[in-house]
């Protein structure tokens, strides 16, 4: 009987999986497991066996039955799938080219916001925290404490809007540095993002723009650390690119430098390049070592600590990053510009 069972099972498997139609499959089902099917009949014969054999055989038979039912079910679903495929192949096709619809409009973030966020993320990774301050400032924070007393020639470098002296619209975010240093003992590592105002409006200047300034103060900060941080920042923002530090002057830093990045358009060749005006370099910001007088103003001891500061215009960075060529377009809020910043 054992051999018999084995052959019944393998025969059933072969037949079932080859059944060409649902009708044939039904016939096979009746043949094997129907009321008078082969396996059912064998089950009926179990009662004729001796008790000890009955149990063993019973288990085996049930096993065979289960297996046969399993292959029947499998084949059934296979055949059903085949029918469905046939039906679907006859179904009408969609016009795949029609625009899709999902019930949410796509928003966008202003290019300046994007660049600022990216900038901040990069600086946070190396330990800088965000500090903010008022846009309406006192002369003291905007100039005086930054080593730019009244009648200092450097005041001409930034044309300032006044509300009623000494109240003004900050001309840089440097006053935040003063406020931060007055509030906290060194070491200090901050970036100050925000709007700044200068009384200047032409092809290349707008009266309000966004700046991020960085400040790091500790016991052994030198110009080498300033260069290291700016290389890291620019590499992350624009990819690895040569930088040059051009000696310059700001009253609140000394030594001071302008930071130039190799032109992203002509890659420094300067050949007929509109982006860098054929100089091969793009000015991206100013920087320097914090002037000892600034430290004295905030109660830091310049013999104990040193530090660097740098500042960059976000519109400038966004222009270079996204290829925007008119700074005034940042504040027109033309939808055709804004919607390009939706991802």
């Amino acid at each position: 009987m054992n051999d018999n069972l084995e052959s019944i099972l393998s025969e059933a498997k072969t037949n079932v999986s080859a059944a060409p139609s649902k009708e044939e499959l039904e016939r096979l089902r009746v043949h094997y497991v129907g009321k008078k099917g082969v396996i059912t009949s064998l089950l009926h014969q179990l009662k004729d066996l001796p008790a000890e054999k009955r149990k063993e055989m019973g288990a085996k038979l049930n096993d065979v039955k289960t297996n046969v039912e399993k292959v029947l079910k499998l084949r059934q679903s296979e055949l059903g799938r085949k029918d469905l495929e046939e039906q679907l192949s006859k179904a009408p096709a969609l016009d795949l080219s029609l625009p899709g619809q999902y019930s949410a409009a796509s928003g966008s973030l202003h290019p300046v916001t994007r660049v600022m966020e990216e900038f901040i993320q990069i600086m946070k990774r190396i330990g800088f925290s965000v500090a903010t301050g008022p846009e309406v400032e006192l002369d003291y924070y905007n100039f005086e404490a930054l080593n730019t007393p009244e009648h200092h020639p450097a005041r001409d470098m930034q044309d300032t809007f006044y509300i009623e002296p000494p109240v003004l619209l900050r001309s840089h975010t440097s006053p935040v540095q003063i406020r931060a240093m007055k509030n906290k003992k060194p070491p200090l590592q901050i970036i100050a993002p925000g709007k700044v105002y200068r009384s200047d409006y032409d092809m290349t200047h707008v009266p309000m723009f966004h700046q991020i300034e960085g400040l790091m103060v500790d016991e052994h900060i030198s110009f080498a650390e300033l260069k290291g941080v700016l290389h890291y920042l620019v590499k992350d923002l624009f990819g690895a690119r040569p930088l040059r530090f051009r000696p310059s002057y700001f009253p609140f830093t000394e030594p001071s430098a302008e930071v130039d990045m190799q032109c992203i358009s002509c890659r420094g060749s300067g050949k007929e390049c509109r982006v860098c005006k054929s100089t091969g370099w793009l000015e991206i910001g100013g920087c320097g070592m914090v002037h000892p007088n600034v430290f004295r103003h905030v109660g830091y001891d310049p013999d104990q600590v040193s530090g660097f500061a740098f500042g960059m215009g976000m519109e400038r960075i966004a222009m270079l990053k996204y290829g925007i060529d008119d700074i005034r377009s940042f504040f027109e809020n033309d939808l055709r510009m804004l919607e390009q910043f939706s991802c």
Partner: peptide, 10 residues
């Protein structure tokens, strides 16, 4: 002047 990325002092 060399360049050196400083350790955070935060």
């Amino acid at each position: 002047i060399p360049q050196n990325l400083p350790l955070s002092v935060a």
